[in-house]
Amino acid sequence: MSKVILGVSGGVDSSVSAYLLKKQGYDVVGVFMKNWNEEDDDGVCTSTDDSLDARLTCSKLGIPFYTVNFTKEYWNNVFTYFLREYKKGRTPNPDVMCNQEIKFNAFLDHAMKIDGDYIAMGHYARKSKDNELLKGIDENKDQSYFLARIEKEALKKAIFPVGEYKKDEIRKIANELGLRNANKKDSTGICFIGERDFDKFLDKYLFTKPGDIIDVDSGKVIGKHKGIIHYTNGQRKGLGIGGIGNLEPWFVCGKNINKNIIYAAQGVNHPANYSIGLIGEDIHFIGDKPSDFNGVKAKFRYRQKDVDVDVKIKNDEMILEFDDFKGITPGQVAVLYKGDVLIGSSIIKKPIPKFEKYSYLNDCVD
């Protein structure tokens, strides 16, 4: 009987994963990963509640439960990356890095040390017989995007029990089993920030100061920002510059970290918001680099529809060209798919503007 070390989070997806694995005949061990120590704004450590849910669920399902502490690894390999990217004026995706560095690296190593044959996670993703990473069946919950940076060898050892199901089916199974977390709210946001005030959290770790918001067309100062790290490309809310100009909404279309400037453009369809390509760095393929990129599509953020792209690799950079797309954000992950197969990714370095006159916006991030 193969032994599977399952990452249990206290949520319904990993809980039903435990049941499905047992049903398939695996010897299942539930392990809760403690990655963060801090309390939220109300003085509550949410990981304590999640750990309790995970432990009680494992007990109900009759599987062993353990806790492993990865707070040091998380701080060194995920959180410091998160802070470093924000200091550069970029907007990182720490959940992608958590999968790369913790769940499919540190956790995998731990699982092998305790004689596990496989690891399992409650991600809505699938794996082919050839160990290709596939999208989950549920298009609304597919989480393959967050797995774009894991290694092929880790994927060979991974099982995704809920990937063949839709979310409502998983909740139905959980209710039929009488699991305490059957209707538990899905976790949202960055795992170590949770429900707390995001701007307040960033200010605790990074120095920032107010600066000018400049109209990308006139070059005039139209407002003040509270710190450049609190803004991202495409952002609409929180600019505090309503009632100016033609009364259409304003959007962040660029940042200059050295000059502490936010550039804003007015109107949903303002040309400064649009790109026709991007340049990516830190290229990663799950397996060998494809011999061709015909038929490849891409996502530039989670829950976005796939976009047709032309792919070029040049000087360790990935150049993606596409039709108009709004809000390309440095620091985010551009993920490539061929059908349902996730083939690789790169970290967005800068967008390629639709119009040359806005090219200076691309050089605003260190």
Rank of each mutant, 00 (worst) to 15 (best):
residue 2 S to W: 05
residue 6 L to E: 05
residue 18 A to P: 09
residue 23 K to E: 15
residue 33 M to V: 06
residue 37 N to S: 14
residue 37 N to I: 05
residue 41 D to H: 05
residue 50 D to L: 02
residue 52 L to H: 13
residue 52 L to M: 15
residue 53 D to N: 14
residue 55 R to C: 12
residue 58 C to V: 09
residue 59 S to Q: 15
residue 59 S to M: 15
residue 59 S to H: 15
residue 61 L to D: 12
residue 64 P to V: 04
residue 66 Y to T: 07
residue 72 K to F: 11
residue 76 N to G: 06
residue 80 T to Q: 12
residue 83 L to W: 08
residue 89 G to I: 03
residue 91 T to H: 13
residue 97 M to Y: 12
residue 98 C to G: 01
residue 104 F to Q: 04
residue 110 H to V: 10
residue 112 M to A: 01
residue 115 D to V: 04
residue 115 D to R: 15
residue 117 D to E: 07
residue 118 Y to N: 00
residue 121 M to P: 00
residue 125 A to H: 04
residue 126 R to F: 02
residue 130 D to G: 14
residue 131 N to L: 06
residue 133 L to H: 08
residue 133 L to F: 09
residue 138 D to V: 04
residue 145 Y to H: 10
residue 149 R to H: 11
residue 149 R to P: 03
residue 151 E to V: 00
residue 151 E to W: 09
residue 161 P to N: 14
residue 165 Y to K: 07
residue 175 N to I: 06
residue 177 L to Q: 11
residue 183 N to E: 14
residue 187 S to I: 07
residue 194 G to N: 02
residue 199 D to W: 10
residue 214 I to D: 05
residue 215 D to W: 07
residue 220 K to P: 09
residue 226 K to M: 11
residue 242 G to T: 13
residue 249 P to W: 05
residue 257 I to W: 08
residue 260 N to L: 09
residue 261 I to L: 15
residue 270 H to P: 12
residue 274 Y to L: 02
residue 278 L to H: 00
residue 279 I to P: 01
residue 279 I to Y: 00
residue 281 E to G: 13
residue 284 H to K: 15
residue 290 P to D: 10
residue 295 G to L: 02
residue 297 K to H: 01
residue 302 Y to T: 06
residue 303 R to K: 15
residue 306 D to C: 02
residue 308 D to T: 01
residue 309 V to S: 00
residue 329 T to L: 13
residue 331 G to W: 12
residue 341 V to I: 15
residue 341 V to W: 09
residue 350 K to N: 05
residue 360 Y to C: 01
residue 360 Y to H: 11
residue 362 N to C: 12
